[in-house]
Design a protein around this nucleic acid. Structure first.
Length: 451
RNA sequence: GUGGUCGUAGCUCAGUCGGUUAGAGCGAUAGAUUGUGGAUCUAUAGGUCGUGGGUUCGAGCCCCAUCUUCCACCCCA
């Protein structure tokens, strides 16, 4: 076999121990908050049937699905000569890697509905895959940390999710802005300007307001087939700034003739009202420009961005009223959010806000002198370990210099030297690596020092 | 998927107009009193210049393809 350069697929990454320590810090922090709010863990397979995934994320989403080639002779029985990519795809692939955790969750809920107690609150921390073109903060394999509650219409769930967001980012010490909107408001706007069927085009264009400015947004809307008449009706909304009360007052008038708009406005007012009564550490705002694309959202939508670094959203989600409907279970409203662990990692790295104390696993290294001393140390390490202290014995009697270097590089704070002298006196030499100080003490004194 | 960009030692990067044997710093390894890491000194190793073609007497440098990185669009965690 010829020698080949090892490599991994585009947009995927290996994680070294030092990276994993930090990643786990993020996962642990998030998981702890989830549990604190009473959510229960589940996991689902990396791959799902394509029929489960297709059509849930819009046209764009379907393109970004990684499809798995059928095993065996996947061309068997295929005689279509029309070169239709869709029929070919259907024939050779029936499984795909999951694109997010929400759709598999909906599938899970339908499939296990008889075992679940509703409202069902679950969290799920697993990787997802998207055949996107990689960029900064955009990977083809990345971890999502989802919390959802399904089987409850109450806006209290939204309130809880915002509390979770606030708690997570406070703990991680990332300053964020929480933006909130409601799909019903967007639908109301579409209705109010007379283009209810153009909701998606409207929201996609609206979402770019901050980025490209009002003029470009208007242009895009016209390109997307929204009449200039309708676009003009929208104009005052594009300039809508300032206090939330001002926005509410304006929209109340704007939505005079649209039921769904008023409904959305009512929902957001209640939510904001609840949130104001809480003592949240991060800022939140009602922003009609927020227009998350995922097709299944029907109510509240939430997006979180870091304040001190340029990065896409690090958390997002919303309410979906009928995601389980297509799997045969209706009347199951759910709401959930997803934390993007990899982006959170990138943000924390850029801001240099990882706590320095994480990562030091082993507390003490025993130098290996071989022979009798080795047996002596093996016994001591075992004894110390049983009191819950992480300890290592170097596996072979290498030069002391080499062993000391091992301790240094692995950030092991203490080194024990126990040779002939120590064995006889019963006191071992303990070196504190940060200061270089070395003192003799009994084993129980060492245990006390490290506990 | 569209347009652009990057790739030279483990890492960060030099490398002239296409010209002999591709360099530096950091790091690594070994040593400087056989029981002591970080600092210093000495020595050593390390490269198919992303990969594959092409042009040329001659290619790290020019051309084409491809992979990868990053960026914009699209979309999104």
């Amino acid at each position: 076999m010829s020698l080949q350069k090892p490599s991994i697929p585009k947009g995927t990454r290996d994680f070294s121990p030092s990276q994993m320590v930090r990643r786990n810090y993020i996962f642990d922090t998030i998981r702890n908050v989830f549990q604190l709010f009473g959510y229960q863990p589940i996991e689902t397979p990396a791959m799902e049937n394509l029929s489960t995934l297709m059509g849930k994320y819009g046209e764009e989403g379907d393109k970004l699905l990684f499809k798995i080639l059928n095993s065996g002779n996947f061309m068997d029985g295929y005689h279509d000569q029309t070169d239709n990519i869709h029929t070919l795809t259907k024939h050779i692939s029936e499984k795909g890697l999951r694109y997010d955790l929400t759709v598999p969750f909906a599938r899970f809920v339908v499939q296990h509905q008889n075992e679940l107690t509703f409202p069902f609150k679950r969290y799920q921390i697993q990787p997802v895959w998207r055949a996107d073109r990689p960029q900064k903060g955009r990977y083809r394999e990345f971890f999502q940390c989802d919390v959802d509650v399904i089987g409850s219409h109450s806006l209290l769930n939204e309130v809880e999710l915002v509390q979770i967001i606030d708690a997570v980012f406070s703990k991680l010490r990332i300053r964020v802005l929480i933006r909130i909107n409601n799909r019903k408001i967007l639908a109301g706007i579409a209705e109010a300007i007379g283009v209810p069927e153009k909701l998606t085009d409207l929201t996609v264009a609206l979402d770019k307001l901050e980025k490209v400015g009002a003029e470009k947004v208007k242009e895009e809307m016209i390109e997307r087939g929204i009449s200039s008449d309708s676009v003009e009706k929208l104009a005052p909304l594009l300039d809508l700034e300032g206090k939330m009360e001002t926005k509410f007052d304006f929209l109340t008038q704007f939505f005079a003739d649209t039921e769904i708009g008023r409904l959305g406005l009512k929902e957001i007012e209640i939510l904001i009202d609840y949130l104001k009564a809480l003592d949240l550490k991060n800022k939140f705002e009602f922003d009609i420009k927020l227009a998350r694309g995922l097709n299944y959202y029907t109510g509240t939508i939430i997006e979180v961005k870091a304040l001190d670094v340029t990065m896409g959203s690090i958390c997002g989600g919303g309410r979906y009223d009928d995601l389980t409907g297509i799997f045969g279970l209706s009347e199951m409203s759910g709401v959930g959010i997803s934390f993007g662990a990899d982006r959170i990692y990138d943000v924390m790295l850029e801001l240099n806000i990882f706590p320095s104390e994480i990562g030091a696993a082993t507390k003490v290294l025993f130098i290996n002198f071989g022979g009798e001393e080795e047996r002596f140390c093996l016994k001591l390490t075992s004894e110390i370990r049983s009191s819950g202290i992480s300890v290592e014995l170097f596996p072979n009697p290498a030069k002391v210099k080499k062993q000391m270097e091992y301790a240094h590089r692995n950030n092991i704070p203490y080194v024990v030297l126990a040779g002939q002298d120590e064995m006889q006196s019963g006191e071992i030499s303990v070196k504190e690596m940060s200061t270089g100080n070395q003192t003799k003490m009994r084993v129980d004194e060492l245990k006390k020092l490290l506990s």
